[in-house]
Design a protein around this nucleic acid. Structure first.
Lengths: 203, 203
DNA sequence: GTCTATATATGGATAGAC
DNA sequence: GTCTATCCATATATAGAC
């Protein structure tokens, strides 16, 4: 994690950090400038406005999640491989950016109107879950897994992967865990989630 | 949902609504005044400052979640009854306040220092999960459920209950569902979550 | 208790020197 | 490109009339 020499990149990283921590309305341009080690005026020189800077950060955050999901969902793996890949890859990504899910979810919730245009104008579009849904239905028909609404299974998997990160502060209070203990809990989630899901669906 | 006649109560409800939707930093006193149908000055007359008003709203939100959880967790039910009660009650509460979990989680994450004093000074304290943990261990020893780290099981249950609400905007994009469809999905989560969990742990 | 008007602080954005 | 100084809009908070 060496500090980039060029100013624009330093600002980008500082903005990412501050926005993810405080959100759009909570972040101060001064905070970003301080963290980047430069002056407030520089932010406007490079990125024009707070909103433009935020849009960039948000889009980049979004793109950290979706392409990888998509490539797994549309792969040629069978259902069980796909679930394993999804769980492992997804938790790995989140582990590298633990504040990312809450940031994305929260800003999406606060700007219900903005996200669509920003997303679909630049991105390849929302993930394609059709193939996974179809695979789930096939396995149910074959009798290899128990009947379940495919959408529910997908939602369950995502919930198990993501919530421990999104809900961290709340769960820590409930379980009375310090940061170190919670980190340990998160580290073995890949195996835990995978095992739990496979148990739940196996016929 | 009739509108209260007395001003203080109107402000409280308006504040709750606006804060839950926009968060502390995103909410404007003017928004709250407008929604309450009174003047900005009134807010300060009754609640002194934005921060004090927020603290009240946040604490009330918090207290909507915890007492009920606690009473279930410490009850004399056996493990399976307890899981069923927890899932049904918890999802019912969230269904009545769908914005509550994201609000609480988000503000907790943004104010890591504030929450402890505010909470523990007024509340009966964090939920007691010890009893549940012990019950899980007992059932594992008896062989009625598969081995699992008790904390993981608890975390899994909460994740399955809460994430569909917290992650709504994101999940809706992924699954390409409109509000009506998503509402339908949420309505059958009680049965879905309970069945999924029981399948996953049954020996 | 409720309003209008105003004070005060904060934060995003720009001007202009270097 | 980078800085300091400043402008200006917005938002919280208060004063004071009714």
């Amino acid at each position: 994690m060496e500090i980039p020499v060029n100013t624009e990149e330093r600002i980008r990283l500082a903005a990412q950090h501050v926005f993810q921590k405080k959100g759009l309305s909570g972040a101060r341009m001064q905070d970003i400038a301080d963290e980047a080690g430069i002056n407030k005026a520089m932010l406007h020189y490079y990125f024009r406005s707070k909103e433009k800077l935020f849009d960039l950060v948000f889009l980049e955050s979004f793109q950290k999640i979706f392409p990888k999901i998509n490539s797994i969902l549309t792969s040629e793996d069978n259902l069980f491989q796909k679930i394993e890949h999804f769980v492992f890859e997804y938790i790995t990504v989140i582990n590298q950016n633990p504040h990312l899910p809450l940031f994305v979810v929260n800003e999406l919730a606060k700007n219900p109107e903005l996200f669509l245009q920003k997303l679909f104008s630049t991105n390849e579009g929302a993930p394609k879950v059709d193939k996974l849904i179809k695979q789930i239905e096939e396995e149910i028909n074959k009798g290899t897994i128990l009947p379940i609404k495919p959408v529910n299974l997908f939602l369950n998997i995502i919930s198990l992967c993501v919530f421990p990160y999104v809900g961290k502060p709340l769960v820590q209070i409930i379980l009375n865990m310090d940061d170190e203990q919670y980190k340990g809990l998160l580290e073995q989630r890949k195996q835990e989630v995978l095992g739990f899901v496979l148990n739940a669906i196996k016929a």
